[in-house]
Amino acid sequence: MNPKKVLLAEDDMDDQKLFHDFLHHRSDIVLLCAVENGEELLNTLKTVDSEGLPDLIILDQNMPKRNGIQTLQVLKKEERFAEISVVIYSTHTDQQLVNEAIRNGASKVVSKPISKEGYGKMMDDLLKLVGPSSDQ
């Protein structure tokens, strides 16, 4: 069972670290090197080949330059990235954000957890989106 490659775009260094600290020990995922904003994410993706592309992208909504949804729109337009599951995550999620994200092709919208257990549960849920491990 191949672990899923997960890429986080998050400008808040505390949050990047928490994400890493709480999740890096899991064997069912591989955390790719996190990026700080949408711009950087797109630049990074352009440099990797199809094999290296993530299975799941987690986008913080409030990021400088390109916010989560704006980045999502770019991703969904690029043929090479359109099939990757993208999740918007934010401190505050309201119906408006959920509607807009789903309309733009997000697989899910999640609130940022406030505990280690919360992070674990969030990742369990998100892995269901990318299906059972592919046995390619």
């Binding site: 505390d14 928490l18 401190t91 505050h92 505990s115 280690k116």
Partner: peptide
């Protein structure tokens, strides 16, 4: 204000819980 207030509050919540561990 409410959106922006939530971020620092969440930080307090998450780090205080870490301390509690």
């Amino acid at each position: 204000a409410s959106h922006d207030l939530q971020e620092p509050v969440r930080k307090i919540q998450i780090f205080s819980r870490l301390l509690k561990n």
